[in-house]
Each structure stands twice: as C-alpha cells, then as structure tokens.
Design a protein around this nucleic acid. Structure first.
Lengths: 212, 212
DNA sequence: TAGATTGTTAATCGATTAACAATC
DNA sequence: TAGATTGTTAATCGATTAACAATC
C-alpha cells in the first residue's frame, strides 16, 4: 500500500481537478505550478508538494501538461471507475441528489432509492421506482452497492447506518445531522449542512475579511 | 476586534454545539474536558485550547457546566441572532433547503425564493411565492438579506454572485460547483457536493481504515 | 483538606513555504 | 546553450498534544 496521504491534500484534489478541467476547456495545454498557483490562490510549492504525493507528473523547464495531469488526478480520485449508489430517504434532499446530473457524468450511478413512507413507495422518480427500505437487504444481495446516501431524519439515521454496514456497504455519504460511529473498513463522508451554515454565521459576525 | 481564531477551530464549534446539546438532552449537567474528549474522539487538550480562544468557561476541579457552555457556544456562533436568507434557484436543491425545518429552528429564516423559469415563478412553496430573479434587486432594498443561497446551475452562478454582491449582501452559501471570487467583506461558504463525493471515492479506493 | 480539573505554557508534530540542485 | 521549472530537501509556521502550576 502507498504511503498515507494527508486528508488535507486529498480534499484539495477535486479542486485541482476542476481547475484543470476549466483550463482544458479553454484550450490551455500546459501550465506551470507558478501560473496555476496564481489562478488557484495557492503557493506553487504547495501544488508541487501535493502532486508529488502521487508521482512526478511535470517536466523541468516546461511545467505540466494539462490533459495528462487532469487524467492523472482523475485516476487518483478513482473517477475512472463507476460507483453504484443507493439513496436512503426519498425526501427533498434525496430527490435533489437523484436529479443532479453531474454525479452520473462522473460515474456515480444511482441504482436505487428507498423510503419508509408507504405513500411514496412505488412511485417513480427519474425512472427509478421508490422501494420499501425493508427491501434494502435483499437488494444489496442482488446488486453491488458502493455507497449508501443517508438522507433520512436524524432520528432514523443511526439505526439505518448500522443496518447498511451489516449489509456490507463500505461507503457512507451522510446528510443527516448526526455523528455516525466510525468502523473499520467503512468510509464516512459527512455533509453537515447545519454546521456549514453555522460556520457562515460565525464568520459573518466576526468581521473577517478576504477568505478562501 | 478579538484576536483571529483559526478556521480549524471555528469549524469544530458546531460539533461541540451538537454534542453539548445531546448531553443536555440526556440530563447531563456537567462534563470534564477529559470525558467530552472521549465522546468526541478528540484530546482533552484540544478541547480546552479551543474553548480558551473565546473565554474561560470551566472551573478547576469541576469541569464545565453543560448548559452554560452550550449557551456560550451558541452566542459565539451568533445563534442568538436571526438571519434572513433568500434562496436563488427554486430547483430541487433550493426546495430541499427551503423545506428543511432545522434551519428555521436555529434562526435562519427563508424570506424569499427566486428563479429564472417562468413556469415556476408565481407558484407557492412552503407558503412563499417564487419570485422572478429580476425582482431580487428591488427585494433586497425592501428587506435586509443576510445570506444568499446560490442554488443555480454553474453557468449562471458567477454572474448571479456578482449581482448579489452589488446589492450589498454579505453572506453567500454556495451550492454551485464553481469558485466564486473572494471579495472584501463578503463571506463565502461553499458546499461542493461533487468534491465531497470525489473525496469519498478516493478514500474508498485507498484502503484507509478508521477515520474521523 | 485532598482530589480533580482547569487555563496556559512548553514541546511536539505535521503541514506549508522557501530554496536550490537537477534537468528538460 | 541559456532559461525555465520541476522534484525534493531544508526552514518555517501553525496546530495539536503534553505537562503542570493554579485553584476550585
């Protein structure tokens, strides 16, 4: 296994990916760490350090080939594979995620959506029939699920999480505003919207100036 | 102005707030940094350091009074005030946010929702009429807006952002997958869902074990 | 009082930045 | 070749952890 890369670096990768994609779209084929640093508001040093966690993608005197680097990062992020996702909770958040087309473009495919509410179960959303959450166990045996999206109310989130893990699902994208207990081999990515909004509130009051 | 508190600390505050709220709900009235550290998977040192950025809330030999500390953090985060928000983009994400009741409980009130689509404009969502985005300027003169939620497609986000800033709105909660240029006095909080999902994909592939 | 636990200073660790030899 | 820019080592900076006197 490769040496451990810090989470700070990993969290910057999607941003590199976005900027490089924009460059390519604008017909720019090469870029130096210096020029990229100016666009991204980072230091050139940091960019080179970040990239060198994964390999030597540049060339002295030349810089980086944009397309090549973009593909390397795509590979690093695991975006050459596809992922099967299920959405747990067919409320507004679940539906919003299901309808957002960008995810499928990146290889994240929604193969199922589940709910507990009899009034929603059976209805069709974006070509997928909403299933009873009790079907998830059986469904997970017939289909390989990479990621479960937890989009249910806080009260149900923890129990659901335990079930999901017991079905062997390794990736959790958690939208519920609660802590899910870390378990070996299970990766949890939290999207705590309330926390995000509170942080914004704090910063609005603290009279902070230019930021990120 | 107080000394600058690092963003790392600020981002931990909502989590403290959540845990302390849970403690209080469970009837726990006092807690030591040591016990809290065990629950939150932090070090006791870090908790004391974090809190002491803002004041001395504990007592030697006793620990912290849960209710008192909760209120202090509430105050620090600016949750004793209320905030007026407008949602820009009445699509699924905009609607999901509008319908999520937790925000209003914390003092974040949605006072308007705007869209560009004539088919949606005029319809009513959660008791609020969807307005034409062209009304936003006039609306912002009649109402104090603390935070604009950008929930429009990438293509429109940058122009909209420039407009919003020109209307004097200082807080931006950005759900579009693009970079908004930092400006003095404007606070941007990004929720980059695609980035979050990519980070999850990376971690799923990297064979990482227990985390966060 | 004795024990517990804070607030705070000092030590450590890790991440960012600077510098520069290697080399395209 | 000369200039540019990398990859990488060393220096700096900041954040986390440890230690402990103060004190409830």
């Amino acid at each position: 296994m490769e040496k451990k890369v810090s989470l700070a670096v990993i969290k910057r990768l999607p941003r590199y990916y976005r900027f490089l994609g924009d460059l390519l779209d604008n017909g720019i084929t090469r870029i130096s760490s210096k020029d990229l640093s100016l666009k991204m508001n980072l230091t050139a040093s940091q960019i080179r350090q970040d990239l060198n966690n994964f390999g030597c993608f540049g060339q002295q005197g030349y810089g980086y080939n944009v397309e090549l680097l973009l593909n390397e990062i795509k590979e690093i992020l695991g975006l050459n594979k596809t992922y099967n996702l299920v959405i747990l909770g067919a409320g507004k958040i679940g539906q919003a995620l299901l309808n957002y087309n960008k995810f499928e473009k990146r290889g994240f495919n929604f193969i199922g959506i589940f709910d507990i509410d009899k009034n929603i179960i059976g209805s069709e959303l974006k070509g997928i029939k909403v299933q009873d959450i009790n079907n998830l166990k059986a469904f997970s045996k017939e289909n390989h699920i990479d990621i479960a999206v937890i989009a249910v109310p806080v009260a149900n989130a923890t129990d659901l999480y335990e079930n999901v893990v017991s079905y062997g699902i390794k990736g959790i994208w958690n939208f519920s505003n609660t802590e899910l207990k870390a378990k070996d081999g299970v990766i949890i990515e939290n999207v705590h919207l309330t926390d995000s909004l509170m942080t914004l509130a704090y910063r609005l009051n603290s009279g902070e100036f230019v930021e990120e």
